[in-house]
Design a protein around this nucleic acid. Sequence first.
DNA 1: CTCCTTTCCTATTGTTTTACAAGGATATCT
DNA 2: AGATATCCTTGTAAAACAATAGGAAAGGAG
Lengths: 149, 149
Amino acid sequence: MKISTKGRYALRLAIDVARQQESGPVSLREVSERQGFSVKYIEQLAGLLMHAGILESTRGAHGGYTLARDAANISAGEILRASEGSTAPVACLDDDFGVCPMREQCTTISFWEGLDKVIETYVDSVSLADLASQPIQEGEMCEFEVDLS
Amino acid sequence: MKISTKGRYALRLAIDVARQQESGPVSLREVSERQGFSVKYIEQLAGLLMHAGILESTRGAHGGYTLARDAANISAGEILRASEGSTAPVACLDDDFGVCPMREQCTTISFWEGLDKVIETYVDSVSLADLASQPIQEGEMCEFEVDLS
DNA sequence: CTCCTTTCCTATTGTTTTACAAGGATATCT
DNA sequence: AGATATCCTTGTAAAACAATAGGAAAGGAG
């Protein structure tokens, strides 16, 4: 049960924008240099976050992205749902799934609903401001996209 | 972030065994008929659960599987970890990953650790006895492996 | 002893998803 | 004009997933 690079990169993209946007719109070129992403890949993620009303863009030279709202008002859950599609642990709990016709006979649904709930509660309780306020260190970049060889 | 069929089927397999084992070892043929699984596929899962000390087997005719321990003493988390490998939301928190060399500079690790913790706490709080004690209905089978066409 | 059932173990295969890259259109600042 | 960006769709190699296949070993029934 893993979060994909979409969700992980989208989080770090949002954190990067939150931290850097005071000096104007943050371009994906800058972000990619700081975070070790390819511009072409995070373009897609930026698009998703924009569509979800999390980022705003200004096009053209010196353009880039800014937060559409205050960082304190954006949750990690929102970012993950926008990038990953959903944080539900089983497909039958996705918003677009509708009601499962087998729901009444299902022995595991209430277990999955409980899991879904603790996940949502947690990711919605953490704001982008919380994430962005951690001390900044040299050589930012992370998780495990690290070549250990 | 989805649980794969391994984890979902393994849970239902364990529930089925828990419910049926009073009348002797439960064969995978029976389970597959009740749950709509292929015998060949859940053979693998049964093997994983056995290796993890959750199931015990008796071979030969009239053989099958029984719980290695009391159902109240087996958690859903154990079953998921045995079948899925891990319930951690990011690979750097898997047991076999070791310590990430970038950990100190990572802006998201504490967020993922928190998520991992709420997931583990929840799945370890639910026992197989809890799951198996739900009322049994006709046409048992579930989740969303249902042909909606 | 021989069939039948069942677990056990390891490949192999087909499909889907992931993680990007490519190419080009559109917008804006200098 | 030209450089720098976002925007938008499509393509693709590799990995993961879901399941199948084939057969060995063990134990009960006739």
